[in-house]
Design a protein around this nucleic acid. Structure first.
Lengths: 141, 141
DNA sequence: TGATGAATATCAGAACTCTGATACTCATCC
DNA sequence: GGATGAGTATCAGAGTTCTGATATTCATCA
């Protein structure tokens, strides 16, 4: 099988172009794509621990810890001990984090919108269904 | 826009499941996915310099240099000065590299085959066309 | 009560990835 | 010949990502 015949290459290319576009979009806000993803998950799930954010962002707890450390250093996230469970650290956006996230989100949503606008409603559903089938086949082992 | 409404998430999920499946496939051969990709490009383009391999593997020359350094340390790749152009380093698979690549390739092709088998010919063409349109839209800016 | 399992967190090490900057060689154009 | 631009290579730094291992807390069950 030649490398050009492989579906994987098309998926990788699309994903890389997506990351490149999003990276350029969130860069003016001083964020990387993973950092932005973490802030997005955090804004929709205030107080979530790192392990939960990792699941939402499709990454590992270790990676999320690293990302959060950088966000804490930037003053965008605060980590506080959970009121009841001593072992859990709650993560919350600071005010600066809120503002920075909204700034980045406007640009990131624009990218998603541009992508969505390239397809009809039917095509969009089709693409998502086909990608879903890829995931199912690949992870079923 | 809620995070669940974004096409980007589906692409990322498919790509991650793909990497996870390929990673598991090439791991018995002692390779990572990027290392396998480099060996694949090298097997189809013997003697190619790092910059060329980087383009084929959709990565940067710096990253490819790192990958090649690891492959050289494993004894799978040899780097030699180009006969005419003094500035260029030619990369070639060693015999061990050939063997290791073929071992990994069998497993990797099986993953791609499993993926391809999940779709009809029409669906496959459709998926690739839709992904291509994603890339075009995202990289046109 | 004590054991077990699930979930969290973290340390350590390695690999991959990028941007930015710099240097060298080669071909081309003036 | 000399300047310019393209292509290659590399150093430096930072960020992301993984696997593996370990510790802690909490809930559940024997």
């Amino acid at each position: 099988m030649r490398s050009g015949d492989r579906i994987g290459g098309d998926i990788k290319r699309a994903e890389q172009d997506l990351v490149a576009a999003k990276s350029a979009a969130v860069k003016p806000a001083g964020l990387t794509v993973p950092q932005y993803s973490a802030l997005l998950a955090l804004s929709e799930n205030p107080g979530a621990p790192a392990a939960t954010l990792a699941r939402l962002c499709l990454t590992t707890p270790q990676t999320m810890t690293t990302i959060l450390q950088n966000l804490v250093a930037l003053g965008l996230v605060e980590r506080t001990s959970h009121q009841w469970q001593r072992n859990v650290l709650e993560n919350r956006l600071t005010e600066t984090g809120q503002a920075r996230f909204h700034e980045a989100d406007r640009a990131a949503v624009a990218v998603e919108q541009r992508l969505a606008d390239a397809f009809s409603t039917e095509e969009r559903a089709q693409l998502r269904a086909l990608l879903q089938r890829c995931s199912d086949v690949l992870s079923e082992s």
